[in-house]
């Protein structure tokens, strides 16, 4: 990502150099005994951290106005703190108009721009979170995210399941879990290659996300098995929503890279919360899923 921002970094580097030149031009280097080492350590620490924030921020963001604001704000703070650091080794005459002015202008300006940037970043994040609502339900932890599909993984599922159980019990609303598993996924992998299988799972994720309610949570359990948590859904509604997901999968005409169309069917296992622990609920859903798979008659796509 950082390559996207090479001009911004170059700009900040040039400005930093200019302040060095300026300071050298108007000031004189201090004697050893005049230098306060404690100040140097403290101020170089601030300067280093400001630089680190700048790099992390730029490395994690695409181009855009929000990024520019953040970079500008952090850049100002970096240069300001750098100037502050240089003050410790270069004495600028009291009469000079530059004395202290770079730092005292750049720091507040930088902080204001950064605040503005953070405000817009917050707006942007709200928008993105809204889109990811059905994947994360107000909780995000990148370590519990599946790399292929971006959904939460099994650990995330278990964590959310126990929390939802508690919440639904307090609110006296039912809770259901649907496990959905593709039929003969390994045949697809074998016939079309694993890369195609990976892409299929990614696109299937989109299909599932489009076909659940706003309050539902979709996770990738493992392999081709997905789990959907349905707060507020009783047995009947869960059956209905499960069937809708199955239909959505059956009608999804996946296109391979060579342009072939593959249809699939999926089996589901549904369990409603009866106050059992989370893993017992999951085991029940798994058993029903395996029963459904065993007794499955080929569905017509």
């Amino acid at each position: 990502m950082i390559r996207l921002h090479k001009w911004k970094l170059l700009f900040i580097a040039v400005l930093t150099n200019l302040t060095i030149l300026l300071t050298l031009a108007v000031g004189e280097i201090k004697f050893w005994r005049e230098i306060d080492w404690l100040d140097i350590v403290a101020e170089s620490g601030v300067c280093l951290l400001a630089g680190l924030w700048l790099v992390f921020t730029l490395n994690s963001r695409p181009k855009g106005s929000v990024t520019t604001l953040l970079a500008l704000g952090l850049g100002c703070i970096f240069i300001g703190s750098f100037q502050d650091l240089m003050d410790e080794v270069i004495a600028i005459p009291d009469a000079s108009p530059w004395r202290g002015s770079i730092e005292s202008v750049l720091m507040p300006v930088g902080l204001i721009i950064l605040t503005l940037g953070l405000y817009h970043w917050h707006k942007e994040q709200l928008l993105l979170s809204q889109q990811r609502q059905r994947q994360e339900q107000d909780y995000r932890d990148y370590r519990l995210q599946d790399r292929l599909t971006g959904l939460g993984d099994a650990r995330f599922l278990m964590q959310q399941l126990s929390q939802l159980q508690l919440r639904c019990q307090q609110q006296h609303t039912p809770l259901a879990i649907v496990l959905l598993d593709l039929d003969d996924f390994d045949t697809i992998n074998r016939r079309y290659g694993h890369r195609e299988g990976d892409r299929l799972l990614q696109e299937l994720t989109e299909v599932l996300l489009l076909n659940v309610r706003r309050c539902d949570l979709v996770c990738r359990y493992a392999g081709d098995r997905f789990a959907v948590l349905l707060p507020g859904a009783g047995e009947q509604l869960a059956q209905q929503l499960g069937a809708q997901l199955q239909d959505a999968v059956a009608h999804f005409a996946y296109k391979t890279t060579r342009g072939e169309t593959i249809y699939h069917s999926a089996s589901t296992g549904i369990a409603t919360d009866t106050g059992t622990p989370a893993d017992a609920l999951l085991t029940l859903a798994t058993q029903r899923l395996l029963q459904a798979k065993d007794s499955r008659t080929p569905r017509v796509a």
Binding site: A154, D181, A222, T286, Q287, L290
Partner: peptide, 12 residues
């Protein structure tokens, strides 16, 4: 360590 992987890949 990852019961979900065993369950999906190997069965019950």
């Amino acid at each position: 360590t990852h019961p979900e992987q065993y369950s999906v890949n190997w069965g019950p």
